[in-house]
């Protein structure tokens, strides 16, 4: 593995090795001194062209827990559009001495461009509505810790599938690890063509949710979509929200997940997020461990992962 750009096409063994490592790094994070010298002397740059404080913090915590130095680049909204090209920006930051870049960008494919221009490992920290592979890893780690394995699990990903890089990344990773994934969304928020996707689709949450082991709720992104994609938020909640009433109908050991930030009262009931079977905070904790595993796999010597 030279880069981590997408979960699509990742071998099952690669995913499992990363998850096994992530589990060990999760242990490191519980130590009195939650830090190991594995990447001492390495520099990780976070290039977040799209603001995301939490994902950046998670990557920086992961790098620091491995004793790497971190640098962060965040363009002002205006300097990005015109003037210096993305390529020049990337070359400039690279020239400062960077061993790995984490790239988040609002446009699909940006991490691939950087991987083409630079000779260092690139981690996709989220590109457009395309991929967010470390989110998939942390989600799979969370599920694996809960259920032991993803094999044969029924997982529903619910919400704005069409504009969700989380849905795309998680679906491929979960399916590769043996889960049966169902994408649930209003018809306007399902991608137009999912025929080659390793997932079923449904527009009816109530019809599919009772067999689910995991219900993964996506944030309702009212800022995307460009127009009115469903009639109103209450109508969305009525059909697709994980209300406490719906939660009560889930299998007794089923869990609820959410990538954050949550819209309580919209896609997830006001109190549902606080239930023991809502794994939202565990996901956040695992985010650091999963990203440590990725950084270590890409920078920790000749990688066999």
């Amino acid at each position: 593995m030279n880069h981590l750009l997408t979960t699509e096409g990742l071998e099952r063994e690669t995913l499992e090795n990363l998850l096994t490592d992530a589990d060990e790094f999760a242990e490191v994070l519980t130590r009195p001194i939650p830090k190991v010298p594995a990447l001492r002397g390495k520099t990780v740059a976070t290039m977040f062209f799209e603001p995301s404080t939490r994902t950046r913090m998670s990557f920086e915590k992961a790098a620091k827990a491995l004793s790497a130095d971190t640098m962060s680049f965040s363009p002002g909204t205006s300097s990005l559009s015109k003037g210096e090209s993305l390529k020049d920006t990337a070359l400039t930051v690279h020239a400062m001495g960077v061993d790995l870049m984490v790239v988040r960008h609002g446009a699909t494919g940006t991490p691939w461009r950087l991987a083409e221009w630079l000779d260092i490992p690139i981690v996709n920290g989220g590109d457009g509505a395309h991929q967010h592979p470390t989110q998939a890893l942390l989600d799979c780690l969370t599920i694996k810790q809960r259920f032991g394995s993803l094999d044969g699990l029924e997982i529903a990903i619910v919400g704005d599938i069409k504009h969700s890089r989380v849905a795309r990344s998680d679906m491929f990773a979960m399916a590769t690890l043996g889960a049966n994934v169902t994408l649930v969304a209003p018809p306007t928020l399902l991608p137009v063509d999912t025929t080659r996707w390793p997932a079923a689709t449904s527009t009816d949450l109530d019809a599919v949710m009772e067999k689910m082991d995991v219900v993964y709720l996506l944030r309702v992104q009212t800022e995307r979509g460009g127009g009115s994609v469903f009639p109103s938020l209450p109508e969305y909640t009525n059909r697709y929200g994980m209300t406490s009433a719906r939660f009560a109908r889930l299998k007794p050991d089923a869990v609820v997940m959410h990538p954050g930030p949550m819209n309580r009262g919209v896609e997830i009931g006001h109190d549902v997020a606080d239930y023991e079977r809502a794994l939202v905070l565990q996901q956040v904790t695992n985010g650091v461990a999963a990203r440590m595993a990725v950084l270590f796999a890409l920078l920790g010597g000749d990688s066999d992962v």
Partner: peptide
């Protein structure tokens, strides 16, 4: 075609890019 930058279909769906039908 507003927002769209490629043909709407199986590839745009996978890439998560807005399509032009």
């Amino acid at each position: 075609s507003a927002h769209g930058c490629m043909h709407e279909g199986t590839v745009s769906s996978r890439l998560g890019m807005y399509g032009i039908p």
